[in-house]
C-alpha cells in the first residue's frame, strides 16, 4: 500500500496526517494554537508562524509514528500552499520541500479550499462530485461550482468580512472572548433568536455574494447603542448577551443557507458539500439538514474533526498524484484567494 504524508499550516493549526491510497486516514495530528491567540481576540499571524516553526517537525514525526510507518514508507508529500497567511504557509511548504529534497519524494501542492470540500468526499466515502462546495471559516465564505475534485469555479464570496470573522468580532463586542463561534453558540442556547431584528444582507439579491460587515455594525449598535445617542442599558446582562448572540447567529445561518440554496438552483447540482470552521456550528448544521429535506438534495457537512483545519483533508493530494500533477521544488505560496 502506498502512503501520503500531508502537511497543513495555512492558518493557526499545525497539522500533519498520513493517508493511504484508499484514502484511509492512518493518522491525523493537529496542534492547535487557540490558547495562544485567545488573549488577542483572534489569530496573530506572527505568533502563528513562530508556533508553526516550533511545532512542525514534532507534529510530522508524531503523524508518521502514529501511522506505524517511517518517512521511507511514503510515496509523496502533499502540502497546502494556498490560500492562507503567508508566514504560516511558508513554514509548511519549506518543511515539505526540505523533506522532498532529502528523500527524493515528489512534492504535491494542495489547495486548502479544495481540500476542505474534499473532506466531505472522505467522510461520505463516495464520489460527491459534481457539487456545490461551500467553505465557511474565519477567512472564507466562498461558494464554488465543483465539477470534479481538482476543478472549481467561484460562484460568490464575501465582499467584506468572512462569516467566522463576524463571529469573532461579535463575540468581542459582547465581551465573550475568542474563538467567537463556539462561545456565541453556547450563550445563544439561552437566548431568543427573535429578540433583535438583524439585517439579512443580500438575502434576496440574485448574486451569490455575502456581506457580514453591516451585520457586525448592526450588532454593535443594538448592544452598545447608536453613536451620538445615550448608550443602551443591559450591557453585560447575561440574558441580553444571550438574546443578541442568538439573534445574530440566526441571521448568519439564514444568510448562509439561503445562498447555498440559491447556488444549488443556479448550478442545477443536487449535492452541497460544506466545510470550514463555521460548519462546526450546531444551528448551521441543523438548518442545512432542513434544507436537504426541503429541497430533496444531498447535503454533506464535513465531520466535526475535519471542519476546522487539519491535514487529513490533504488526501486530495492523491487526486493530484493520480493526475501526475506534481509541484517543482521552487513552488511558491499564494496567500491570497484569486477571484476567477
Amino acid at each position: 500500500m502506498q502512503h501520503l504524508l500531508a502537511i497543513e499550516t495555512s492558518c493557526d493549526e499545525t497539522a500533519a496526517a498520513v493517508i493511504d491510497r484508499d484514502r484511509r486516514v492512518l493518522s491525523s495530528v493537529v496542534s492547535t494554537q487557540t490558547a495562544l491567540h485567545e488573549h488577542y481576540g483572534g489569530v496573530v499571524p506572527e505568533i502563528a508562524s513562530r508556533a508553526h516553526l516550533e511545532r512542525i517537525l514534532p507534529v510530522i514525526d508524531e503523524a508518521i509514528k502514529q501511522a506505524g510507518l517511517t518517512l521511507q514508507d511514503m510515496s509523496a508529500i502533499a502540502v497546502a500552499t494556498h490560500p492562507g497567511l503567508s508566514g504560516s504557509l511558508l513554514i509548511g511548504l519549506t518543511a515539505a520541500k526540505t523533506l522532498c529534497l532529502a528523500t527524493g519524494l515528489p512534492l504535491i501542492a494542495v489547495d486548502h479550499i479544495l481540500a476542505h470540500i474534499y473532506a466531505c468526499q472522505m467522510a461520505s466515502g463516495r464520489d460527491v462530485y459534481p457539487c456545490v462546495g461551500f467553505v465557511v471559516s474565519g477567512g472564507h465564505t466562498h461558494l464554488f461550482d465543483c465539477p470534479s475534485p481538482l476543478e472549481h469555479k467561484l460562484l460568490g464570496c464575501t465582499i467584506d468580512d468572512a462569516a467566522g470573522e463576524a463571529f469573532d468580532k461579535v463575540a468581542q463586542i459582547l465581551g465573550l472572548g475568542y474563538p467567537g463561534g463556539p462561545l456565541i453558540q453556547k450563550v445563544a442556547t439561552q437566548g431568543n433568536t427573535k429578540a433583535c431584528a438583524f439585517p439579512r444582507i443580500f438575502i434576496r439579491d440574485e448574486r451569490l455574494d455575502f456581506s457580514f460587515s453591516g451585520l457586525k455594525t448592526a450588532v454593535l449598535y443594538e448592544y452598545q447603542g447608536i453613536p451620538g445617542q445615550p448608550p443602551k442599558a443591559g450591557q453585560g446582562d447575561p440574558q441580553r448577551i444571550a438574546d443578541v448572540a442568538a439573534s445574530f447567529q440566526a441571521a448568519v445561518v439564514d444568510i448562509l443557507v439561503a445562498k447555498a440554496d440559491a447556488a444549488l438552483k443556479k448550478t442545477g447540482y443536487r449535492r452541497l458539500c460544506v466545510g470550514g470552521g463555521v460548519a462546526a456550528n450546531g444551528p448551521f448544521r441543523e438548518a442545512l439538514t432542513q434544507l436537504a429535506a426541503r429541497r430533496k438534495v444531498d447535503v454533506i457537512v464535513a465531520p466535526m474533526e475535519y471542519c476546522t483545519d487539519n491535514a487529513a483533508m490533504g488526501a486530495i493530494g492523491w487526486e493530484l498524484f493520480e493526475a501526475e500533477r506534481f509541484a517543482s521544488l521552487d513552488t511558491d505560496i499564494t496567500p491570497g484567494l484569486v477571484r476567477r
Binding site: 467584506d160 468580512d161 468581542q172
Partner: peptide
C-alpha cells in the same frame, strides 16, 4: 470597530480602478 474603515477603503480603491469585489476586510490575511 464599525466606524467604516473597510467601507472607506473599498470606495477609495474602487475609485482607483480596483474592482469592488476584490476589496474586503484584511483582518484575517493582514
Amino acid at each position: 470597530l464599525g466606524a467604516g474603515k473597510t467601507r472607506f477603503s473599498k470606495a477609495y480603491c474602487t475609485a482607483l480602478g480596483v474592482s469592488k469585489e476584490e476589496v474586503n476586510s484584511p483582518t484575517f490575511v493582514l
